[in-house]
């Protein structure tokens, strides 16, 4: 069995319950709030709960970087994060400019984090092509 850095196992152990909590929070918010509910303290509070899980995801990713004691594996992850950040900033900024001047569909900011997560795969591919290893 190939060696796996314990930081990856800890990362997975954190991400699974956070993901379950996120899905449960989204389901609960969808059940409690009607579509396009009026913004008030109660509705905003309910809608913010899934955001806590998003914060937890980001925290778990930060912990992964902190806990990876293998400098090369850490480099792979940092490169992935940087590439994903660049792709997301470029994509959303360009789409935003197009939104300003044309009637293309508006991109909800909700999609920024999923786009960033998807862009991690581009980072993984770039790592694979340039260094031969993708990362976790």
């Amino acid at each position: 069995m190939p060696y796996q850095n314990p930081a990856y196992s800890r990362y997975l152990r954190r991400m699974i319950p956070i993901t379950v909590a996120y899905l449960a929070a989204v389901a609960a918010a969808s059940w409690l709030l009607p579509d396009h509910a009026t913004a008030n303290a109660r509705t905003i509070a309910v809608a913010l709960v899934p955001g806590i899980a998003v914060l937890a995801w980001i925290w778990a990713m930060g912990r992964l970087l902190m806990e990876l004691d293998d400098e090369y594996l850490r480099l792979l992850e940092v490169r992935k994060f940087l590439i994903a950040t660049g792709v997301t900033l470029a994509g959303t900024s360009i789409w935003g400019i197009v939104e300003l001047f044309t009637d293309v569909p508006r991109l909800p900011v909700f999609f920024v984090f999923p786009i960033w997560c998807g862009a991690l795969m581009i980072g993984q591919l770039v790592n694979q092509r340039s260094l031969g290893d993708g990362g976790c």
Partner: peptide, 22 residues
Amino acid sequence: AEKLEVSRQSVNAIETGKYDPS
């Protein structure tokens, strides 16, 4: 890798000159 307490990928990347160790 085990003697250095790093991953096998690290050893491979250093050997092939793709990564410069700290």
